[in-house]
Design a protein around this nucleic acid. Structure first.
Lengths: 359, 359
DNA sequence: ACCTCTACCTAGAGCGCGCTAGTAGATCGC
DNA sequence: GCGATCTACTAGCGCGCTCTAGGTAGAGGT
């Protein structure tokens, strides 16, 4: 490691550095008004003249004043902060987080994000949020003990996003997994596929539902004999492993439904790398429609879970509860939507036929 | 949208729900001691007997008490909170964030994360952090006006990670971009490449340095005539675009150095999709070694920027400043390390030769 | 008996803000 | 000319905690 020094414009030269941050009282003193007036101005409440407002803002800018949210929270009965727990590596969570911000803002709430990672468990993330005075919690595809979450729900409003959470008095918002899966299977069968494998999501959110839906959809199409579920989870690695399993066998299936987009990505790349033509030889479908799937280089057929809609509902639900709504726990289920892109097509030998029919 | 109701175990049935959260005073009252004593116990300070400690914790657990960090912050002179601003979609940032948490925790700091996204600009993210009373700021590859960051640095300790930030009195921690790029070019030239294109990172962190280093490394190898820089930024899309540009030309280069891993990913996929053999026809190298590059399905040759080291230094630097160290601004530069994986190899026509020599 | 020392505990003043209750001064109605 | 009604502002309590400056009780020394 190398170190360099660059122009030392630190320290005492600059007057305000190092002393404590300015407070409302400092601003008030500078303008020559009371603290309360400054408070009014910053909360945008009536009761101050336009001229005074301008002078207050001016002084605040000069001092570099910024309201202290800790003090605000303390003084207000409510903190106006929503906590979001997400997995840092999950791109769909990234989409959701992005969507949550504007909605919360519109409703006057600040968002605090706490991340879960292999090295940092969910409980810790949630505890951090709680001590930062979140009034409500939005848990993205949580993997913790249901009992823990239920317990949380007894203390503060909690909404679980992206997974079912029935019978525990906690609100949830998710898509109709079964319907999404059914749409994909219908799409594939319509294209002429019969040999359709499903790579499972293990104990990840939505997996159980997706697996069951796969099985029943296959049966509905008279393909009970073709049902095959490979174990996996929602990571790229599991897709790669599934691909390796399939490639080691004498005959590839003509289509694979992955547990989610990340898994599909792993599948896709391992297959392409083995010179398998996608979708010529094998069609691949994902689930989530995370921003990765949109990218032209992936161009994945997948099931869209509308993150904007999910985020909107999640935030609204928590805020309603906060508003004192003493309703029983709700489960809000969104319609998923199949998004057909470039990774699915007719199975080998059916290409011309389909081209003729499809128009 | 469908709605369901599930077991309504909400509301008045459960006593504690809806009433305000318990405070230290509640715990104290329950144990029959003073508030101050409870405070001692929770801060793990000497001055309470073992027995009392146990009783306090017991009571706290029964009440579901949790210290209110807003009040703690307010009462303490320092908040013990570090703010991190990251881009939600950047996987390398995810790696860094993950690495920052344990280091901060070890040093007794809590971490607040604020995300930047296309819809939410960096200034807003930083403002949020500041309001939440962060004592120090860690900015991951910031893209804001340098003047703004410099200004910030005058108020509170700020460390910029992943990009140079010279002469503005702000600490920075990054890798020696030039050296990393030189290593890649050396590696490629050694393999026999001459036609090596660089896809630029635009105004993204590190880009200028990488571009310059590419140019000078090429010149050093007597390949001044082969220098070619395509515009781009640090997204997958820009990689795809660069690939399209290259594919539209009569002759492909034999190697491409992308601005970062995301860009490399776009390149890779667009090329493979066009049936270009990687690395048989074209070698591709990235920059960052984000967790995506590790994945077996990507297996990208790239330049490793050690996120653990970067995180460690970043946190330590901020904390040192917080400790009152009144040093001039430091620039800490880490050594990058070339990681050769599967996307680079000898150029077309040199494969056998290299295989013979390489052992 | 008195003093000291240690171990354990308490009172109470803030931290920066929001908010309720109130005041000074201008304008208006009659 | 006096109360009524604004507008523009202020005083001061309390949010839940930390922390300084104590207080008390019992053990031990002289």
């Amino acid at each position: 490691m190398r170190e360099q020094q660059s122009g030392g414009d630190r320290g005492a030269a600059d007057g305000r550095r190092r002393d404590k941050r300015p407070t409302m009282a400092d601003v008030a003193a500078r303008v020559g008004v009371s603290r309360a007036l400054v408070s009014l101005v910053f909360r945008n409440e009536p009761g101050a003249s336009q001229e005074t407002r301008a002078r207050v803002f001016q002084a605040a800018a000069e001092l570099g004043y910024r309201p202290d949210s800790a003090a605000q929270m303390l003084a207000r009965s409510h903190s106006k902060v929503l906590g979001v727990a997400a997995t840092v590596r999950n791109p769909f969570h990234a989409d959701l987080v992005e969507a949550i911000h504007p909605v919360a803002e519109r409703l006057g709430y600040d968002v605090l994000l706490s991340v879960t990672a292999p090295t940092r468990d969910e409980v810790k993330a949630v505890e951090a949020l709680l001590s930062h005075r979140c009034e409500g919690l939005i848990l993205l595809g949580p993997n913790t003990e249901p009992e823990y979450i239920a317990d949380l729900g007894r203390r503060i409003p909690v909404v679980v996003v992206g997974r079912r959470f029935p019978g525990r008095g906690v609100d949830s918002v998710h898509t109709a997994e079964a319907k999404g899966v059914r749409q994909v299977i219908d799409h594939l069968v319509e294209l002429g596929h019969r040999s359709i494998v499903h790579v499972d999501g293990g104990r990840q959110p939505g997996s159980v539902e997706r697996r069951r839906a796969y099985q029943s959809a296959m049966r509905r199409h008279g393909l009970a004999g073709e049902i095959r579920v490979l174990p996996g989870d929602h990571t790229e690695e599991s897709g790669v492993q599934a691909a390796e399993t399939l490639l080691a066998e004498p005959r590839l299936p003509t289509a694979v439904l992955a547990g989610n987009d990340r898994c599909a990505l792993g599948l896709l790349d391992a297959l392409r790398r083995a010179k398998v033509d996608i979708p010529g030889q094998v069609s691949v479908a994902g689930y989530d429609d995370s921003h990765i799937a949109h990218l032209s280089y992936v161009d994945l057929t997948t099931v869209r879970q509308d993150p904007d809609r999910l985020a909107e509902l999640a935030v609204r639900t928590v805020v309603e509860r906060l508003g004192g709504a003493d309703l029983p726990a709700r489960e809000q289920v969104l319609e998923p939507k199949l998004v057909v892109r470039g990774t699915t097509g007719p199975p080998p030998g059916r290409a011309e036929e389909a081209a003729g029919a499809g128009g």
